[in-house]
Design a protein around this nucleic acid. Structure first.
Length: 561
RNA sequence: UGGGGCGUGGCCAAGCGGUUAAGGCACCGGUUUUUGGUACCGGCAUUCGUAGGUUCGAAUCCUACCGCCCCAGCCA
């Protein structure tokens, strides 16, 4: 390794990793220390996954470490349920914080001391202005603010008032502690920002120990300093806060000097990624819960059958930059398909069954045929699939009057039943309403396994399930939760909900090998897509979720017309 | 009208004064194929928001302009 090289030279490149390489080369630290700092007020979503992969990824690549730190400074919004789900989701994603699990609330004592330190230094004061008054005094984006009438209080008076705030002598909102910086700053965050507010609320971890709580700004940088974080990576909207972050680090006797860097948050088409919106979708019942497979939450992706490695791969592909970016969902789905193609066992399932009777196959008899479990992985082996006189095929694999490009079954046409036989449609049976209810076919016994000894070819191979051996199942098909790529772009986001985002199919026919599929194992239903068992599964009623469809050239051609 | 950012193909994104302007997704062909899947091959920016300037040479440097995003919570 030459001296211009640093660890992880072969790894991902982005402007943050470049900064770390430069810092390492300059000897500013031995190894980077990062942190993922969620507020426990909701479930983690794929936007968080981008940050998790960045922070934990950097630690892994450069031989540093990454802390999991809960930013729990607002007890009115935070809950234990979220603290637990967040840890489970980070682990599921594949990352480990080791011993480094922290809570900003663990630092409340030190934060309080630092607040008094600022008061002693004449750099903070207790302000009695109401929230509305403070808004007036703050000025606007283009006009400077005015100084609070309480800004000139003596150090002793400030100390006394602040201690009484802590002692619970005042009601919520009566007073706040503010930094004394610059009411004329163009950066509104520097106009004497609030450091502490009175909140008589029970905290999920500290209980009733406190009735004043530090704000995000007064907590984050100092927590970073306490934990010796070297690179505090956050999203773009905090860029404006960096001067305040630095001001606090400079004016407090903190044990280290962390620096903040900002990157663009993730956006995805047909998706909404704001906590506020996700909470609304859940609480208003537009989805079934935080783990609804239509949600971009990590628990939603898990239930839908997305492998965590697919999400990591997605994070790696999208990169890290400072430009506002909206990824197409297709890119995420491509990551899932790529991984699942290599790993998912192939099975046959008929979602919308059409009965087929093989007229020249003996009634009451059956046989077993070998089917490959995964053509991408020979070690996955083969399984036995039963075949008999009565079968089901997919309704859309038959057309009575097919257009020229339709290769599947039609009257008089021969196709292959995968791993079984060539069959020819001899008769179409309809009900009184004219609906096709059954097909009569003949099979060629010489084509057993799917090849014709005389070398003749067929243009299509269909999946099928033997009627007598089939398992009935429920299959849930998911589509984008929102009907337009940019939900809410003109109007209420909720108006853009896709009414067809969930389609529940019952009476689906599965090949018997699916009965003992491990409950969390992804499978590919041949020619249809990737599916995974849902927790609602019971032995009496198997339930599968569709993770992703297969690419479908035929569907694409049809859509094109 | 203040402050902070960002503008490279449909969507991301490399590029850091001299390369034919990486790569992925998407799209369009074609080959293989017992999944209209996969894999493989090929195509897809004479141009980097615009206009000037510096330079032998600019996506990269300078100037001006244009467009987009964020900030006026005692949320994070």
């Amino acid at each position: 390794m030459s001296d211009s090289e640093t660890p992880a030279d072969g790894g991902p490149r982005d402007f943050i990793r470049d900064i770390i390489r430069a810092d390492l080369a300059a000897g500013r630290m031995a190894a980077p220390v990062t942190r993922f700092p969620p507020e426990p007020n909701g479930y983690l979503h794929i936007g968080h996954a981008k940050s998790i992969c960045l922070n934990f990824g950097i630690a892994r690549e450069f031989g540093g470490r990454c802390h999991l730190r809960f930013d729990d400074t607002n007890p009115v919004k935070e809950e234990m349920e979220y603290i637990n789900s967040i840890q489970a989701d980070v682990r599921w994603l594949g990352f480990d914080w080791g011993e480094h699990l922290y809570f900003a609330s663990d630092y409340f004592d030190r934060l309080y001391e630092w607040a008094e330190h600022l008061i002693h230094a004449g750099k903070a004061f207790v302000c009695d202005l109401s929230a509305e008054q403070m808004r007036e005094y703050r000025g606007t984006l283009t006009e400077p603010g005015r100084e609070s009438p309480h800004r000139g209080r003596s150090i002793d008076e400030n100390l006394d008032l602040f201690r009484r705030m802590r002692a619970g002598e005042f009601p919520d909102g009566a007073r706040v502690l503010r930094a004394k910086i610059d009411m004329a700053s163009g950066n509104i965050n520097m106009r004497d920002p609030v450091l502490y507010r009175i909140l008589h609320a029970r905290h999920p971890r500290t209980g009733d120990a406190w009735c004043i709580y530090p704000t995000y700004d007064f907590t984050h940088g100092q927590s970073d300093a306490i934990e010796q974080i070297t690179h505090s990576i956050c999203t773009l909207e905090f860029e404006d806060h960096r001067p305040l972050y630095d001001w606090l680090i400079e004016n407090l006797p903190v044990p280290s000097t962390p620096h903040q860097y900002e990157f663009a948050r993730l956006n995805i088409t047909y998706t909404v990624l704001s906590k506020r919106r996700l909470i609304q979708l859940v609480t208003e019942g537009h989805v079934k819960g935080w783990d609804d497979p239509r949600l971009p939450t990590l628990s939603g992706y898990r239930r839908r059958g997305f492998p965590p490695a697919a999400i990591r791969e997605f994070a790696a592909r999208i990169g890290v930059s400072k430009s506002n970016a909206t990824m197409e969902v297709a890119a995420l789905e491509a990551c899932a398909r790529e991984l699942l193609n290599r790993t998912a066992l192939r099975r046959m399932a008929v979602l919308r069954p059409l009965k087929v009777v093989i007229e020249n196959y003996p009634a009451g008899e059956s046989e077993t045929l070998d089917a490959v479990n995964n053509p991408e992985d020979e070690a996955a082996g083969v399984r036995a699939v039963p075949f008999s006189r009565e079968l089901y095929i997919e309704r859309e694999d038959f057309m009575e009057d097919p257009p020229k490009k339709f290769f599947r079954l039609a009257p008089g046409r021969e196709v292959r039943l995968r791993y079984a036989y060539f069959v020819t449609c001899t008769e179409v049976i309809k009900d009184a309403a004219g609906q096709v209810v059954e097909l009569r076919c003949t099979y060629d016994p010489a084509t057993r396994g799917g090849n014709a000894p005389d070398g003749r070819k067929v243009k299509a191979t269909l999946h099928w399930v033997s009627a007598a051996h089939a398992l009935d199942a429920e299959v849930r098909l998911y589509d984008h939760l929102f009907a337009r790529p940019d939900p809410g772009a003109d109007g209420d986001v909720m108006d853009d909900l896709n009414p067809d985002s969930l389609e529940v199919l019952t009476g689906c026919k599965l090949e018997p090998a699916l009965a003992d599929a491990p409950k969390d194992y992804p499978v590919q239903f041949e020619r249809l897509g990737y599916f995974t068992p849902d927790p609602d599964w019971t032995d009496a009623a198997p339930v599968f979720n569709r993770t992703a469809t297969l690419r479908d050239a035929w569907a694409k051609a049809q859509a094109r017309g």
